[in-house]
């Protein structure tokens, strides 16, 4: 006995759907890691090297700024294609879920670093000055002052980024990356199973809602300003 009858089509494709969800989680998960591990430092460099900042460095700023802009100028589909040789060099193949994480991570770094830069710009300049006057090194200014003061903005930015990563991940079908979006297109659209496509969209909506709700709650909770 089932309380709510599971639609026939979902039961029929259960295995594929779970696999697609798994692939989406891998692709988005790796993107999040790249965003935090590399995007955060890159965004921090953009901020602290900017003109008028305490650790101003025009050369470093220009180079990093250009890199981020170039990556973000690509239509994402073209970036994926353009990066195929690089992906092959890194992973050994340009096809599959693992390979798909490469272009996704690159765009993730560029995307989140801009949001990090913006979040850090919201920190009052005086806070950094106080830190420097207390003898803080650049590393200490960043970790003990900047990140602490900007933490809710950093979380909100990451939330926005994650939702974009989900969207980016939906087109990774072109390199066999799989995922929910790819499943929705192949089965729902190309095989005219419109109901299946709608169910996939519903899954995505729920996922995005959950992420946004979590992000907003966490950022509010850690904001004591």
């Amino acid at each position: 006995m089932t309380v709510i009858a599971m639609p026939e089509v979902l039961i029929q494709y259960q295995a594929e759907i779970w696999q697609a969800i798994g692939e989406t989680f891998i692709m988005v998960g790796v993107s999040i890691l790249a965003a935090i591990l590399i995007g955060l430092p890159v965004g921090t460099v953009l901020f602290i090297c900017r003109r008028g900042q305490a650790f101003e460095n025009q050369t470093v700023f220009s180079v990093v700024n250009l890199f981020v802009n170039v990556i973000r100028s690509f239509p994402f589909l073209l970036l994926v294609v353009f990066l195929i040789p690089f992906t092959r060099l890194l992973i050994g193949t340009a096809i599959g879920t693992a390979a798909a994480t490469v272009p996704l991570s690159i765009i993730a770094i560029a995307h989140y670093s801009r949001l990090v830069e913006q979040a850090l710009l919201d920190v009052p300049k005086g806070v950094m000055e106080a830190a420097i006057s207390m003898g803080a090194s650049m590393k200490e200014v960043i970790i003990k002052f900047l990140y602490v003061e900007a933490r809710s903005g950093l979380v909100l930015g990451l939330t926005t980024s994650i939702i974009s990563f989900i969207s980016y991940s939906t087109i990774m079908g072109v390199v066999g990356g799989g995922g929910i979006g790819d499943f929705a297109i192949r089965y729902g659209y190309q095989q005219f199973k419109t109901d299946l496509m709608v169910y996939m969209i519903v899954i995505m909506i729920i996922l995005v809602q959950l992420i946004q709700f979590t992000g907003t709650s966490v950022s509010r909770w850690i904001d004591k300003r």
Binding site: G126, V127, S133, M134, E140, K144, E149, R225
Partner: peptide, 26 residues
């Protein structure tokens, strides 16, 4: 030591943590 017109405290740290950070730095 230095103090400022706009205080320049870390708003996300408690009063105690604001003082503590100076000691950590030193």
């Amino acid at each position: 030591g230095m103090i400022f017109q706009h205080f320049n405290l870390v708003a996300n740290k408690t009063v105690y943590e604001n003082v503590l950070v100076a000691l950590e730095l030193a």
